[in-house]
Design a binder for these strands. Structure first.
Lengths: 225, 225
DNA sequence: ACGAAACCTTGTCATGTGTCCTAATTATTT
DNA sequence: AAATAATTAGGACACATGACAAGGTTTCGT
């Protein structure tokens, strides 16, 4: 008899496996649930102990499953890693896309909300620690690199939209640059946030600073002081 | 006959091994040079292929050296990793400390110079890619985490000094928060910079935006708009 | 109920890993 | 030049890893 089923890992109520293997009519197949379980376990290990610790055997035992069965679902470790990252990244992308259709609040509020998502909301998930791993992996794996760049490109879309609303006078290039700067900035904040120590207790203040800073940066771009 | 000696890896004219193993009176010992060579090779592999690829054998062969000899100088892999990161981090720390005794230029110029160091100068070294690895490792290794936090604490010192000069009215806590924000922000920029694609060609513009943004953030902190 | 497809177990293989040990060789000191 | 210490070579060990194969078991459509 298997252990109690591992709780389904969710990002914003989207399960990892939903993304990797969309459900078919009539519910989930057995294999679907197994893959979901595998991806969940793999992510937990990746986040908690790093990529090196995420071995096939380690994942298999975490799933109460034999190694051979794991390789049945994910023939190679690379398959597992890529499918996992793909699922995680897609979950975030879906979230970012929501900001493209926000209700009619002021652009400043929108900007604040986007920052809020990344700095506060994402931060509270234990998954923040995926990102350092992602960056490290992306330096040596073309596939991961491209997928990560997709992710950040997608994250910049709502940013650019907001920036255009605040500063309709700016050139597309200027808008892109500002979005690039802000997204990179936020990424730094989230990476720091993962490493707690001096950062965590000051998070609310830093979020305030960040939002104010980004708004002012957009407003003041290209102006004299 | 050994291959041509690997060029000594330097950060700002400080060799890696100088930091890990300060030279004794009367010049370098043979072991000193060997360790320098080892650390160099290890760093090159770490940066180019990631932590997983940095195996003892890989490092040894990169040094034209037998495995046993490598373990003579660095008994365990952990020793090697830690000593390497320690050396790299120390090199950056030394650089940061220089900003504590800068000539009497305006605070804004100082801030610009600090940003310049991190965004432009450091970026051009191939070593930028150490940082993603550092962040990933720090999530699972207490030693690395502490050392990394040391580094960023050290990097914040000159930042805080500049912020105090610009805004003598701010509380120590506010100064610390601003420094925390700016350093995290810059870290994000350097991490992005390592991954080239959309970032690299816009680097000069982004540096301008960053510096202006940081100055304005410090100036405008706590004010009404 | 039956047969095919999906799923899972068990066991094995070659390879790569970190660490250790002993003896030879080289540097350094006396 | 002799003695001592530092370095290097060479080999071996136990262990973990990713991948694979052949055979059972369950699930599911018909």
């Amino acid at each position: 008899m298997p252990h109690t089923r591992a709780e389904t890992l969710k990002f914003k109520n989207i399960t990892v496996a939903d993304l990797a293997f969309p459900k078919r009519d009539g519910g989930y197949s057995k294999g679907h649930r197994t893959r979901e379980q595998i991806l969940h376990a793999a992510l937990v290990i990746l986040v908690a102990e790093g990529y090196a610790a995420m071995t096939m055997r380690r994942v298999a035992t975490a799933c109460d499953m034999k190694l051979g069965n794991l390789t049945y679902h994910f023939p190679t470790r690379e398959d597992l890693v890529r499918e996992l990252l793909n699922a995680v990244i897609t979950a975030y992308e879906i979230e970012f896309d929501k900001f493209l259709h926000l209700p009619g609040v002021s652009p400043e509020e929108k900007l604040a909300e986007i920052c809020g998502l990344i700095l506060e909301d994402i931060r509270t998930e234990k998954t923040t620690r995926v990102f350092p791993e992602l960056w490290a992996l992306s330096n040596h794996d073309e596939f991961v690199l491209e997928r990560v760049q997709d992710l950040y490109a997608r994250a910049r879309a709502p940013l650019m939209q907001v920036i255009r609303e605040i500063r309709p006078d700016l050139s597309p290039q200027a808008v892109a640059d500002l979005a690039l700067f802000i997204s990179a900035s936020m990424e730094g904040l989230t990476i720091f946030a993962g490493n707690k120590k001096p950062f965590e207790p000051r998070m609310p203040q830093l979020e305030t600073i960040a939002i104010q800073s980004f708004v002012e940066t957009v407003r003041g771009y290209g102006q004299e002081d």
